[in-house]
Design a protein around this nucleic acid. Sequence first.
DNA 1: ATTTTTTAGTCAGGGGACCTGATTAACTGA
DNA 2: TCAGTTAATCAGGTCCCCTGACTAAAAAAT
Lengths: 176, 176
Amino acid sequence: MDHLLKQQVATSKLVEFGALRHVANDIGHRDNDHQENQLIVQGQGKILLALMTEDNVAQKQLADKVNLTAQSTAEFVRKLEKRRLVTRKKSTADKRVTIVSLTALGRQEANQSLQEIPSFLQVLSDEELDQLAGLLSKINDGLYAEIGDADPTWFNKFHQLLTSHYLRQFHAGEQD
Amino acid sequence: MDHLLKQQVATSKLVEFGALRHVANDIGHRDNDHQENQLIVQGQGKILLALMTEDNVAQKQLADKVNLTAQSTAEFVRKLEKRRLVTRKKSTADKRVTIVSLTALGRQEANQSLQEIPSFLQVLSDEELDQLAGLLSKINDGLYAEIGDADPTWFNKFHQLLTSHYLRQFHAGEQD
DNA sequence: ATTTTTTAGTCAGGGGACCTGATTAACTGA
DNA sequence: TCAGTTAATCAGGTCCCCTGACTAAAAAAT
């Protein structure tokens, strides 16, 4: 009973957080022209991240990885191509497949977007950041289990990308 | 320096969480037909929630509250009307304004969507839920400050709605 | 070796969340 | 009363995503 209440309170905070982050986000956008929504991993961004874990992939593989339809994937890849962040070329081995690759610019862009630390985390102390990371780890693990269906390898790679990305630059031995 | 690292780790967890929640969410959707995305407070849902804090409002007030343009608001209100969740009627006092009201169904729907506890919170213990709620409170407060620009009254009301909603059903005296 | 089936991708079209710009109808104030 | 604000609408556009229909190429089956 008390547990339920606590769950509900946490839920409400989460809902609130979602709403706040949303408006805070586009307040920022109104100033600076067209900056990436960091931390919103979807659409073109999702594709870009997926390519970071494995480059030169068939469009279809990409679609499977990120759990989008072939059509949506095609759309986003095309948009990324227009922005010169990826290239598309037909495979010679199998003339049906299109191979998608990151350009230098694309790689840079992706790295950069991972770099940004959302401003709202700046109110937290070291201990609080640890707490948050710990809680999110637990939640994420639960979600990984819940997913299963979707290609787990991509998410594992994604996970590694994310963590390794940050740890690479330091040589701290801490892990969870 | 160490602080930065902690921030980055937390960021990565957050990004990961976003991606996971996203796919976990639409895995659920593939089974059950068209269920609400709980906890995604935007578009029509945002309007619905806003009406919970104050009903029978002019469309313009609504737009101000939720920080959307009049046009977007009109669009969502229309969609909600088609779903029979709200009604629109011209004000007699001022013939320009359209008054939006929740229907019984709309109110029910909104309550229901607030009720749902995301499955991923079920992996957390009581203490962890408390921790999470605490952290989110702090983050949210920071975001409130960051926003400022947007109508703060709506967010206060929203905040109250959210918390009161959960606490109403019990008569526990706990607050944070 | 030819037919059938599967597979990778494309086009067309649509829905939801937003936005800017232009226009109309009604209210308000000088 | 005439000009200027205000509430709303229409038109059109972008981004994220999906379903359905279809082609071309490869793989499997006959």
